[in-house]
Amino acid sequence: MSTLRACYQLALANGRVTATDRKGRLIICVGYLLGMWLLYWLWRGLYLNDPSRAGLDFATALTHVATAQTLFAIITTPADWRLAREIRSGEVASQLTQPMNLALRHGAMALGAVAAKALYMLPAFALFLWWAGLNLAPSSWPLALASLACSFVLLYCLAFIVGLAGFLATDLWGIIASKDAVVQFLGGALIPLAFFPPTAQTLLHVLPFAHFFNTPVAYLTGQLHGLESLLIQASWALAFMLFAHLASQQVQRKLVVFGA
């Protein structure tokens, strides 16, 4: 109970820090809408001479990509940057003198940041959908929301593990940029996985990649109905949590041994 209360306080605090920067919020929303506008014209150009590509029409493909890009903007948190910075600056030492698991602490803070970003970015997303004449039609909101939660866990755990690399490397820009590129491309955030060869699609669905963005977007757009994909996604989320926990234990042991 006290751990939950601590998580709530941390999430609330980081949510407030994320949401209180009014100018930053405005700039992000304007930049986001500009990006969506460019995405619209890019995909419109792709579909100019062909009403159907990879079995998807223009509206379906654009809805998929726009939703995936929005999810990327909202549920991808800078937990990797923050953790790496705290390790390098030694600030992590102060956190280790507090009775809370490091992964849980950063997870709660990431959740707060995601909730805050959702508050100001979802209206912009709704505005874009209205302007482009698109709409989300999930066959089941509970499944879609569960898939979104799993997606957050996957992305957060990955960011946390990458952030722990701050203990080994000074500059994590390359590692984080590579991670974001792989997650977006193989996760179906840049182009729907339907555009990939069938074998690659199967492989990406079995592996965790499709479950970063493609699975939640498919639930949100009504392309997925059953539980099967969600179960695979949830299994990967559990595996990632376990892996993040083990990595955290290992690094903390090293931190404890070599000093903060």
Binding site: L10, A13, V17, G90, E91, Q98
Partner: peptide
């Protein structure tokens, strides 16, 4: 040289967080 307070939040909020962390 280190801080356990939240840079962007009022002092009272940092203390509430610590209260929750230490139960």
């Amino acid at each position: 040289q280190r801080s356990q307070l939240w840079w962007d939040l009022p002092v009272q909020d940092s203390f509430r967080i610590l209260q929750a962390l230490f139960a």
